[in-house]
Structures are given as structure tokens and as C-alpha cells.
């Protein structure tokens, strides 16, 4: 499925942070967003995935085609690794968590409560969730935080497999993942001009 974003304007708090964001992400492609902290990458990703309405612009793909993974993994400490994953797979109406556990080498940990995992293992479980959603477009916000080199390799392998199956991925990350087919988009160019930065409050000025 192709994702085409046209002239998107997104807001945080009551401030416009990015405006005129346009890009196309074909199926099988990956797009990496770059930009300094606070530029609005997270806001942009949340807006595209449908969590907050954009002020302006259009997103071609419906909200049902996105799988969003933010800073928090949404894990329950008292549920086991397998139970956490099974919950999400039944929410998205899919069976089988075996391959997802396998892809992030979580099978040996399947019975352990998620609260007993290390930060990196939690992150791996959070990313394994993407595999059980079955959605074509992955939206990832800093997916590699607290992952070691091996885990990053697992993640890259999972992304590759997803792209190979016709999916696509949109991510904000600072490290070089070594995914050759990924394009890089610097969002600094879309920074909202300071003069008109307060769309909601303009009427009050």
C-alpha cells in the first residue's frame, strides 16, 4: 500500500511545529525521518498514525493500515512475554505469536513476566508486537533505543522481511541502520515559520 502525505501541518500543544510536510512512501520502501530534537518528529508520526488530527493536509492511507510503535511499549509487567504478545495479536485479530517471538529471539523468555525483562528485552518485545498486527505500514518512533548491536540486527532483519513482503516503514531514528533501500528525509525544511506559529491563537493576536 502506498502512503502519500500531502501538505501536512501538525501541532503540538497549541503550536504549529511542522507545516507543508509532503512525501510518498511506496510499498516495499522505507523512509527515515531526521531532524534535531524537538523539531516535531514524534508529533508528525502521531498525526500520521491517526492519534491526533493534523491541522491541515491529507494522508492517503486509512488509519487501519498503520501499526504505531512509540516511545512506550505498552507492556504489562505482571503478564508474561507470551501473554503480552498474545493479547495484541488477538486485538488485531491474528493468531500465532511464535514467529514474532522467534524473530526477536524472545522464545526462551516467553514465560517470563515482562516486568523482569531488561530495557533492551522490553524494547524487543515492543517491536515484536508490530509483527502480530499484520498491518502494512509500520510507524516507528526511535525504535532502536536501548537495543544492543545484535538486537538492532534482529530489528533490521524484521524490517527487511516486512519490506520484502510488500510492507513499508516510516521511522524516526538517529542511527544508521544500514538499510540500503531506505530513503532519508530531513524534516527541518518543514519547520513552521515563527511568525505564523500560533494557528490557534492567531485570532487573539
Amino acid at each position: 500500500m502506498e502512503l502519500r502525505v500531502t501538505d501536512l501541518t501538525v501541532t503540538r500543544g497549541m503550536l504549529r511545529v511542522l507545516c507543508g510536510v509532503s512525501f510518498t512512501l511506496a510499498s516495499g520502501g522505507a523512509l527515515i525521518l531526521r531532524g534535531p530534537n524537538g523539531i516535531g518528529k514524534t508529533t508528525l508520526l502521531r498525526s500520521i498514525s491517526g492519534l491526533q488530527p493534523p491541522l491541515d493536509g491529507s494522508i492517503s492511507a486509512p488509519a487501519e493500515s498503520f501499526a504505531y510503535a512509540g516511545h512506550a511499549d505498552g507492556l504489562k509487567a505482571t503478564l508474561s512475554v507470551a501473554e503480552n504478545l498474545e493479547f495484541w495479536s488477538s486485538i488485531f485479530g491474528r493468531g500465532g505469536v511464535g514467529t514474532a517471538l522467534e524473530a526477536f529471539e524472545l522464545t526462551p523468555l516467553a514465560a517470563r513476566p515482562a516486568g523482569m525483562l531488561s530495557a533492551g528485552q522490553k524494547r524487543r518485545l515492543g517491536l515484536a508486537r508490530l509483527l502480530v498486527t499484520g498491518r502494512p505500514i509500520w510507524i516507528l518512533d526511535e525504535p532502536t533505543v536501548s537495543l544492543d548491536a545484535d538486537a538492532v540486527a534482529m530489528f533490521v532483519a524484521a524490517i527487511r522481511a516486512h519490506l520484502g513482503a510488500g510492507g513499508s516503514a516510516l521511522m524516526a531514528t538517529h542511527i544508521d541502520l544500514g538499510i540500503a533501500e531506505a530513503r532519508v528525509l530531513d524534516v527541518t525544511q518543514f519547520r513552521a515559520p515563527a511568525s505564523g506559529a500560533f494557528e490557534f491563537d492567531e485570532a487573539f493576536l
Binding site: L15, A194, A197, F198, D201, E202, F204, L205
Partner: peptide, 17 residues
């Protein structure tokens, strides 16, 4: 309330420069 809101908007604009 309108004036307070306007003041907050102006202050936010100052901060953003």
C-alpha cells in the same frame, strides 16, 4: 479570559523568537 489567552499567545511567540 480572551486577554489572558492573548497574553499567553504573545508570550509563547516571544519564547519561540
Amino acid at each position: 479570559e480572551i486577554r489572558a489567552r492573548r497574553m499567553r499567545a504573545l508570550m509563547a511567540r516571544e519564547r519561540m523568537g
